[in-house]
């Protein structure tokens, strides 16, 4: 069981093809698999469908794959930070499937948990619920019937995620809010490739503190991350 690879390109070798569905972790630019995204750009694969909460910003993160027109369709909850995205979408070059954020996360988790579909109240009575099966359940405060819509699990061909640390068996530890979509995205792929800031020897992570067990992880790389901040907000010391 050799999961550690030398580079992002080596880790993706043999896994990429046109028209595939990739699930990517990250929220905004926080916790995105920046090295693996670069390697997907370099590979030149096209007509990708990418399930990711956001679409990066112009020129960084998934924005790079938009600039090169390698993405055919995005499955996201919020894409407001990317002018090139908006241009491609409004001109009809790019398909967009809006998913409520919690629905997207649960669809990924479900796919990785062998659950083909689930009922949620989210989106009932809105555009999101149009064309989806509706069912009622007696879940109201006094047992009243409430409306739910059927959402399907996401079963991705490939997951690309970012964690803080991994051991060489793929056990993962995330850091602060950089965890976000990474565990559910990792779970839903047939193959999951992870980039981390540090690969540590087995035995050095506390087994009680593993956030995602290595069974979900197939290939690992270690590398330097830019970790760009989208909106730096601070307070002045004298306010403290």
């Amino acid at each position: 069981m050799q999961k550690v690879y030398e580079s992002a390109t080596a880790a993706l070798d043999g896994l990429l093809r046109d028209d595939m569905l990739i699930a990517a972790g990250g929220f905004g630019l926080c916790g995105i698999p920046e090295l693996l995204i670069d390697a997907v750009v370099d590979s030149g694969v096209k007509n990708l469908t990418v399930a990711s909460n956001n679409a990066g910003v112009d020129g960084f993160g998934l924005g790079k794959l938009l600039d090169t027109r390698q993405i055919k369709k995005m499955m996201s909850s919020y894409v407001g930070e990317n002018a090139e995205f908006m241009r491609q979408y409004l001109s009809g070059e790019l398909e967009l499937e809006f998913n409520p954020q919690g629905t997207l996360a649960e669809r990924m988790r479900a796919g990785g948990a062998g659950i083909a579909g689930f009922y949620t109240k989210t989106g009932y009575g809105t555009q999101i619920g149009e064309g989806k099966e509706v069912k009622t359940f007696p879940t109201g405060p006094d047992g009243q019937e409430e409306h739910y819509i059927l959402e399907e699990g996401i079963f991705a061909d490939l997951s690309i995620v970012k964690a803080w640390k991994a051991d060489d068996t793929g056990n993962l530890v995330f850091r602060k809010t950089a965890r976000n979509f990474n565990p559910p995205a990792a779970m839903c792929g047939k193959v999951c490739v992870v980039e981390v800031e540090e690969i540590v020897p087995r035995g050095s992570l506390d087994p009680d503190h593993i956030h995602l067990p290595g069974i979900y992880v197939h290939r690992i790389i270690q590398g330097e991350h830019e970790k760009r901040i989208e909106k730096v907000t601070t307070r002045k010391r004298e306010e403290a």
Binding site: Y78, P100, Q101
Partner: peptide, 8 residues
């Protein structure tokens, strides 16, 4: 056309 994020 930015999206609903977590609002729904």
């Amino acid at each position: 056309v930015k999206g609903m994020g977590g609002a729904m």
